[in-house]
């Protein structure tokens, strides 16, 4: 059964820890260097997520046995490491870029490791199907990641982390409504940390210099949807709609939107992204009422 109190505690812990960590690492000087801002964002996410998942009672197994375990124990630390490295002053930019591409290439295989799709005597995918599916998924993540980061540099605003957080939370809710509670609940700390760091950086005027926390959000969104699609009951259409929703923020880059007042622009950007998410959520709720609802009566 869903435990709202537990989810609330996990969200508050993740938000407070990530905001405090980011604020401390940012220091008092303004403007701060891009490297420092990126490091603060990445480490803030790491600290917030660690505490958030602790309060959520998520204890991944070692060695990781499930898709969710591998997301928490392999994928998240890897992306946090890449983004922290990307923020280090002495690290060459090509190294972080290379590691990001490697993660995009490997993430599908990591999350599906030892599952019926890619191993065992009764594997569901042929070798060609597996290569094709994992390549398409890797390319989708790479494109999404690149476009979100490019947008955050071109048109920074608090609406971007908020729309990404909204997509992650919708992914969690839809996965839960499909019957995979633990997978959906994993979205709560991620959403809370992303919103908290976004607001801290926005208030400090450093949002445009710290895309690292958005990278963690993008990889988190992709991973949750991937796990929900291949281990849970999430449909491909819903997964794609949620994954691509943050890219609708690019629509607001057209001249008409750019001419609006800043608060109108931010609200419109938020509304454009929210529309497909609300539709997916409504369909997921209807499906829940039809299939799983009667089991709880």
């Amino acid at each position: 059964m869903p435990e709202p109190l537990l989810y609330g505690k996990a969200m508050i812990a993740a938000a407070l820890a990530s905001a405090a960590c980011t604020l401390i690492l940012l220091g008092r000087r303004r403007p701060q260097s891009a490297a420092r801002c990126n490091l603060a964002g990445a480490l803030g996410m790491g600290f917030g997520l660690t505490l958030g998942y602790y309060f959520l009672n998520v204890r991944p197994a070692w060695p990781p046995a499930t898709g969710l375990d591998r997301f928490l124990v392999v994928v998240l630390p890897f992306v946090l490491g890449i983004e922290s490295l990307g923020g280090a002053p002495l690290a060459p930019p090509w190294l972080a870029r290379l590691l990001r591409i490697s993660l995009c290439a490997a993430i599908g295989s990591i999350l599906l490791h030892n599952s019926v799709y890619v191993s065992g005597t009764r594997r569901e995918w042929s070798r060609a199907e597996a290569v094709l599916t994992l390549t398409v998924c890797g390319v989708m993540l790479a494109v999404l990641w690149m476009l979100v980061i490019r947008l955050s540099r071109r048109s920074p605003g608090v609406s971007l982390p908020l729309t990404l957080a909204m997509s992650i939370q919708t992914a969690g809710a839809v996965i839960m409504l499909g019957g995979y509670l633990q997978g959906g609940a994993a979205a709560f700390p991620l959403t809370a940390a992303l919103v908290a760091i976004g607001l801290v950086l926005w208030r400090c005027g450093e949002l445009s210099r710290a895309p690292s926390f958005l990278s963690v959000g993008v990889v988190g969104l992709f991973s949750l949807l991937f796990i929900g699609r291949y281990f849970g009951n999430l449909s491909t259409i819903s997964a794609l709609a949620i994954l691509l929703a943050p890219l609708l923020s690019w629509v607001t880059e057209s001249p008409w939107f750019r001419r609006q007042k800043p608060w109108v622009f931010e609200t419109l950007r938020f509304a454009v992204t929210a529309t497909p998410l609300v539709i997916v959520l409504i369909f997921a709720k209807l499906e829940f009422d039809r299939k799983l609802g009667p089991l709880l009566l």
Binding site: G67, Y180, L181, G183, Y230, G232, N233, L295
Partner: peptide, 21 residues
């Protein structure tokens, strides 16, 4: 004897049949 429940039981909160077939 209930298709919706069977589908639910196959998910990772229960048997996780895609991971542990």
């Amino acid at each position: 004897a209930n298709a919706a429940r069977d589908e639910h039981l196959r998910q990772p909160d229960y048997f996780d049949t895609k991971q542990f077939p």
